[in-house]
Design a protein around this nucleic acid. Sequence first.
DNA 1: AATGGTCATTGACAGCTGTCAATGGAATCG
DNA 2: CGATTCCATTGACAGCTGTCAATGACCATT
Lengths: 257, 257
Amino acid sequence: MTSEIGPTFRRCHSGSSALSGVRAETRAALEAMCRPRRLCAGQTVIHEGETSDYVGCVLSGILRLQKTLADGRQHIVGLLVEGDMFGRVFDAASDFSVEAATDVEFCAFPRGRFETLLSHAPDLDRALLLNILNELDRARDWMVLLSNRKISSRLAGFLVLLCSRFASIDRLFELRPDGLEIRVPISRTDLAHLLGTRTESISRAFHWLEDKGDIEILDPDRVLVRDVAALASRTGDDETDEIASLKAVLASRRTSG
Amino acid sequence: MTSEIGPTFRRCHSGSSALSGVRAETRAALEAMCRPRRLCAGQTVIHEGETSDYVGCVLSGILRLQKTLADGRQHIVGLLVEGDMFGRVFDAASDFSVEAATDVEFCAFPRGRFETLLSHAPDLDRALLLNILNELDRARDWMVLLSNRKISSRLAGFLVLLCSRFASIDRLFELRPDGLEIRVPISRTDLAHLLGTRTESISRAFHWLEDKGDIEILDPDRVLVRDVAALASRTGDDETDEIASLKAVLASRRTSG
DNA sequence: AATGGTCATTGACAGCTGTCAATGGAATCG
DNA sequence: CGATTCCATTGACAGCTGTCAATGACCATT
């Protein structure tokens, strides 16, 4: 098991990881305290309100950051993928739980030792600050996306975002002559909780986008995006279908008559 | 004017400021580079996509952090009040604009000098990190609040949040024998952009809460909250009015017959 | 092959919000 | 004092989503 730590940790620092860019010395210190973990889909990494004993860095799979409301409803406020960090340093326990949306692997760094290292390694400190600033921006971008009231607009936004933010995860994409095939990496239920709606509306939104010709549903979890630009234009509340068809009628009159 | 800098800056570090808790030495350095600013409601502090030349700390008034969408709609992703910091350090320009929602005063720190100080003052660095972590949590809490589809639930949540997060701003509150009087510090339009809706729905939500007896509308911008706990219980999607009255009927039958 | 369970999908209906339009009130300006 | 402007409010109506219920597809187990 211990022999795995080295390669495991190197994966943690490859690609677009939040920890990429720290000095070799700092990496060595991180490697010394790294504890690889594996969890199956559905398991809880950090319970809501719990002060976690470690800081984590995702190696593979997807974690969901979520809150359970008093009435039992759940809301996902963010997804964590390869290279993303989670867990709070220094102070308060965050009021969100971290759960495995898929099978996941991650690095766990004991919180105390990580904080000590943070105090002595400005490069790590800087990397963490930038990472959190990015998280903040992403959270705010997501808020804007959620401001769309048509679920199909939110879904379109999510798919576009998947292409950009998750682009580094090759496994999810396949370029085909007729478009881009995407593997939607989370369940319909999670998608609903993420987009602030229900699975029924998710289903309707998928099929609405298919009717519009923007996508083709290959499987419940595989989608062919014919034109990413067209999909992106669905973001932002569309005119209603009725008005759209009205305009089409007017346009045809203008050309034919 | 220069004679004002001292007292102005001290205000910046008083109370629950993000910068409270830094060492005297660091404060002195900050004070040396502090430039007080004043703006009127509606003016823009940082334009969308612009790399700002300074980092700011709000002294009084309220700033709104917002994004203008392609179709002209605006969405406010956060409010900044006394003690809140804004402007990005080190890297990317944030894709949000910062505008004055009311008349405001703030401290401006030249970005380069602030970053240099940050590298040499771990206490400031730590304070900034914690501040941003809090911002992140607030952003996520706000996302959860926005997941309510009934606007009255969102509004109730906002009012409750006002009581907790803005509690330090005495000017906004007045304890009365019949409840807590709140001055809503932003316009109806901003409130609509903040809650992801329109002014008409804001109006309906206010009057719905008044009908329920939770609040009393004194002015368009002054509200008497009779019972904060009752208001808090409105957060989270309520049962519909119809079902509520149905339950009331059933309850009365159970007792009378 | 049969069964049970999970999940996606679809239909029907009601509720809430967005939109448009109109009204009313308050403040400002002449 | 009257006119204008801005804002809050209200009404009417349509559209979209939530909810509930039922169906269908797929998988695993027997």
